[in-house]
Structure formats: C-alpha cells, structure tokens
Nucleic acid binder design. Structure first.
Lengths: 347, 347
DNA sequence: CTGAAAGCGCTTACAG
DNA sequence: CTGAAAGCGCTTACAG
C-alpha cells in the first residue's frame, strides 16, 4: 500500500528512477536519457527531470547499471598482501592511474593458495571489468587456468607461462646483476645473497642475477641464505651469515625489508655498516633512505609498475579486447647510498 | 540466431545461470537453489546442476545478485589519501577485518573538495553495503549532508557534529597532552609545536593537547608553526624553527612524517638529536623506529582504528541498521625512544 | 521437490 | 522528442 500521492514523507529507501519519473511525470526512459545526456530530450522535460532528481537526491543504482551496460568501471586488484611499503607504493601507482581513467578499485589480498585465489577471482565476476593480478607465490599456471577467458587481465611480475597474457615485469635479473657487479667493482670479494621465498619469481630472478654476476669474472666465494621477503627473515639470515667462520664482506638482500632486518642483526653483533660489512637491498622503498646508514638498493619503480599495469588494463577495456601478448619489462636502476661505502651517495 | 543445440563450442561470453539450467535440463530456479544450498533439491538434480556448473565454469554474476538481494558484501572506503605508512596501516587493519567478515573493499581516495567527495559517495550506491569515511580536510557537516540516510556509515577521526553517526576517534588530545607533559618532565622548557593543516581535526586536537599541557604548570615559552602533515612541510617548519633567535630545545611534530622531515632539517643544520634538540612525533608509523635516532612518538593504534571501524560497520550491516550514535575513542600510548633523550627506550 | 513468473533498477532499440 | 516494452542475470515467493 503506497502512501497517498504527494505524501510529504518520502520512504527511507533511496530513490529509484521510478520515483524520479513519477515526480517529474515522465517515463523512466526519459529520466534515463535526460540524466545521461543521451538522445535528445525536450528542454522542459529535461528541466523537470533534473529538478525531480535533485529533490529526491537521486543517484543511479550501480549494480543495475552494471547489469544492463555490462560495465562496472571498476578494476579488481589481486595482491598477495596489502601491507608494507612495497604494496603501498604499488597501490598508489594503480590508484592514481585509475582515478585518472575514472575507474574504481576493488582490492583483494592474501589469497594463500590456489583455491583462495580462485574464490577471489570468482567473487569479482560482475563487479569488475578487468583484473590486475600479482600472486608471486602461486604457480604461474594457476591464474592462467583460473581466469575466465572473457576477463581482461594484466599480470604484474608474473611471467605468464604461455606468454599469452599481457604482463609487466620488473627487471629483477638486470637489477641484481648490476648490483652485484657494482659490489664487485667496489672491491668486495665475499658477497652473500639473502633470497626471497622459494618459487617466487622475483626472488629467483634476482638470484639468477647474483649468480651470473659472480660468474664473470668468476668469484671464489659465494653464499646463499634463504629469506622470506620479511624483516624477520632478513634478521635471521643476517645472524646466520655472521655466525660462520668466513663472514661475507658484503650482503645483498633480495629486498629492502630483509636488508633492514639484516642491518639490525649486523649492528646488534657490534659490527658496522659499511665499515665491516656492506649491505644492499632491492626495491628502493621509501624507508630505504631513512635507515642509518641509508641503504644502497635497486630501484624497482614500484609506482610505475602499478601505473603502467593499470594503463595497460584500461587500454584493453577501452577496446573491449583482451590485449593478449604484450609483455613489458620495467628497467631498474642502481641507487647508491652509504650502506655500501661508496663516495657517491644520494639521499 | 542460436547455434544448433549441442554445438561443441560454447560462446566466449561467460556462462549464465540459463546456460547451466539448459545443460542440466532443469529450471533456473533449481540451479539457483542447488548452487546456493537453499531449499531442498533432489539428489539427482543437485548432481546434474553441479556437473553442469563445473563444466561451464559457471560463476554467478555479482551485479545481478546484488540487484536482487540488495547486498553487495562490499564496503566502500573513502580516504583522503591512500599513500604513506599511515594509510597503509589503516587499510591493513580494515582489510584484515573485512576478510574475516567476508567483505570486499572498494577504495576511493583523494577527493579534494566536497563535490568530489559527493561524487565518490554517489558512485558507491549499489556497489557497497556501507561506507567507512575519513575526510579530515572537509567540514564535518559535508559528509553528514552528503550521506544517503539509508547508507550505513562509520566515520573515522571525524567528529560528527550532531553526534548521530557512529564514529571512531583517536585520542589526539590525550596523546598530545601526555607527550608534552613527558617532554616537560624531561626538563625541556622551550617546546615548539609543528601543527597539521588548518581545520584538520586531528591536528586541532593535538594542538589543544599541546596548549593545555603548557598551561599547567604554565610554560614561559611556546611556539607553533603550521605544517601540512607532509615530510616537506616538516622540513620547512624545522628550518623555520631553527632560524629564529630563540631556538626550541624540543620540537613536537603533529605526526611522524613531519618529524622525519624536521629531523632532516635539524641534522642538516649541524645539530644533534636529542643532544641539541629533542624531537617527537605522533602516530608511530613503522618507519618511526628506523630513523636515527629512533623517534619518540605517540602510538595511535592505526591498524586498530581500521579494524574496529570495519567491525562496527559490519555489525550495523548485519543488523541492517545504521547503528547510529555510538562513538568510541581509541586510547593512545607514549612510545619513548631515543629522539628525546630518555634512558628508557624501546625499539 | 520443482518450475513458471515476478521483480530488483536500470538502458536501449523500437514505434509513434 | 517521448513512452511501452524487452531484457541484463539473478532470487524467491507462489503454485503444483
């Protein structure tokens, strides 16, 4: 039973297009056209619709629009984690680009295994137009199999095994290679590596760069300790490296967070950086320049990775295509600060 | 024109409930019931539906579900920014709680003025069940006027002017009061304040704490310089404070980021912290303990703020009520590190 | 237990 | 220029 026509009190339910049409005494089609500026609408009706919409504080229901238009103007972002400076920077890059393109962001994180990732992906259907994917801890085949073929996607730091999915990659190999070569050129002869988690692509690539840099010219000494990309694991790895008989004279941690953990271990052991041991990281997260001594590292252009990934996705959304095949590698850059004892430094 | 029945190749459009129904030779109602486990379904049909759904890799369309069920299981998060450790920690708290409650997160940031915030809010209709709101740079009245009355909301660090909206607040006043009292007790007599942006509630409250702490017992010296909660503004404020005739012997920056900027200015001026000037911040973002010297600050429990805000929102969603009125203040906590020269310290 | 039908709130050919 | 109607993909009383 509706309240009598013209009742003063509107229902507390948000106004729908029907309410606007009723108040303006036009059809819902006209309301839709007037509000969206599509198809000519007479000046008077236009005005009536505008007034009615304003009075009712009408806002279109996005789910209904998404259903009929097959467009959500939203992008799903699946990350392994949402925490820490790395992801903060990444999301920042994505967010900025999305805002610029008028896209919203639906974020989802920490899907530990394949089935959780599958669930997260399934939950996105009908809420997003496309997906940005970073699940370095999963077998690259998993997301490829999971993805509905109709869903545009861009992979971040995941080498699609069949090379079919558009992908942006950090030049982990090149960055690590350059860093270790730099350390060698500084005169360090016992350079140890702290890796990331087993099977993580970034970590594997960085390790490959380390190995190759030690090959030519061949290094007599090398040592690899496993880390987990966490501060704690960096600390533990640092202690392990200091414990042995033959201490490294330089430690290359596969990311900055571990380098910082390692730094704590070194300082705590009463050693000095870079006096006793040089230290380097990877990523160049903001904190890297604030630790003491400021950390020499490899800049990964995290924000750029986010921005370009979103731009790539937005491009395939616009074309309503999947934009298959494109693969882009983002260059890295050596950032020399004091933790490796160079004269050159940057703050 | 449909392809002949039983055509081998499914269309590339994602499967709908109709496709499943057709393949399983049942009605869509049965598919819905079978897949959702609602209403009894015969064992055989259940099985047929399951098989069909699996074969078609069927996933329900969330927009359609949202439309009919009036539930999106998504929460909107409107923040002034998404960048930096403060927001990273906040989002982390929100994300964790959301995951636990089975809610998705639609994030939106940097709506500079009221109309942008209004737009962001409008865009959320039909995509979210409720909203977490933090817009400290806006007049508190703005969001109150903007909000559809039917939309559950929780305000974070925004004192709702009519006290009607559920709100979580950091105890900015108490934290600042405690910090300045602590500095006084350490013997500092010329304590300067670097504020946040004008009109920002957090900043105003912290300033109030500063003033009140200097009142009893009355301090002969006080000085306030405006900052913008950014590192750059902290740096500039630091230079300004050092330039004058009567230098402060302690500087309380209204957030950690400014404290770090200020630290750079102090060190660059050839002064020592805490030897020449003590320094304190607010928030206790992760980086605070990594700068040199480690920063004395006020812990704001950022992650907790996020978690509790989401929990409060989830509670009103469950009850399908707006949960009006509740207001909770989160306690702060002094974190004494080396930047103020205490013997006590924490890392 | 099962299906036909109504309806969520929109947009868009299709007629007039 | 305007409106009646179909339809987006679902769920859920309502009959049987």
């Amino acid at each position: 039973v509706r309240t009598p026509a013209g009742a003063a009190k509107e229902s507390r339910r948000p106004a729908t297009i029907k309410d606007v049409a009723r108040l303006a005494a036009v059809s819902i089609a006209t309301v839709s056209r007037a509000l969206n500026g599509k198809g000519r609408v007479g000046a008077e009706l236009q005005e009536r619709v505008n007034t009615a919409a304003r009075r009712l504080r009408y806002t279109p229901h996005q789910a209904a629009r998404a259903l009929i238009m097959r467009r959500t103007h939203t992008v799903g972002v699946l990350l392994p984690d949402i925490h820490g400076e790395y992801f903060s920077e990444l999301i920042r890059g994505i967010d900025r680009a999305a805002r610029q393109k008028g896209l919203h962001l639906l974020v989802s994180s920490s899907h530990g295994d394949a089935s959780e990732a599958a669930q997260a992906l399934a939950a996105m259907k009908g809420r997003v137009d496309g997906v940005l994917l970073m699940t370095p801890h999963l077998d690259p085949k998993v997301p490829e199999r999971l993805l509905p073929e109709s869903l545009p996607v861009v992979m971040m730091n995941m080498p699609a095994c069949n090379g079919q999915l558009p992908t942006l990659l950090t030049d982990n190999y090149g960055g690590a290679l350059a860093m270790v070569r730099h350390l060698k050129s500084m005169g360090y002869r016992r350079i140890a590596l702290i890796t990331g988690p087993a099977g993580n692509w970034d970590s594997d690539e960085r390790q490959r760069g380390y190995r190759d840099a030690l090959k030519a010219p061949p290094a007599a000494w090398s040592r690899v300790v496993r880390g987990q990309f966490t501060e704690d694991s960096g600390y533990a790895a640092g202690r392990e490296l200091l414990a042995g008989e033959h201490r490294p004279d330089a430690i290359f941690a596969s990311n900055d967070v571990m380098a910082i953990g390692c730094l704590c271990a070194i300082l705590q052991a009463g050693l000095r950086v870079p006096g006793d041991i040089a230290l380097a990281g990877f990523d160049d997260i903001p904190i890297a320049r604030y630790v003491t001594p400021p950390l020499t590292t490899v800049r990964a252009q995290i924000t750029e990775l986010g921005r370009q990934s979103l731009d790539a996705l937005a491009a395939s959304l616009r074309k309503r295509s999947l934009g298959r095949g494109a693969r882009k590698v983002l260059a890295t850059q050596l950032v020399i600060r004091e933790s490796c004892g160079s004269a050159l430094r940057e703050r």
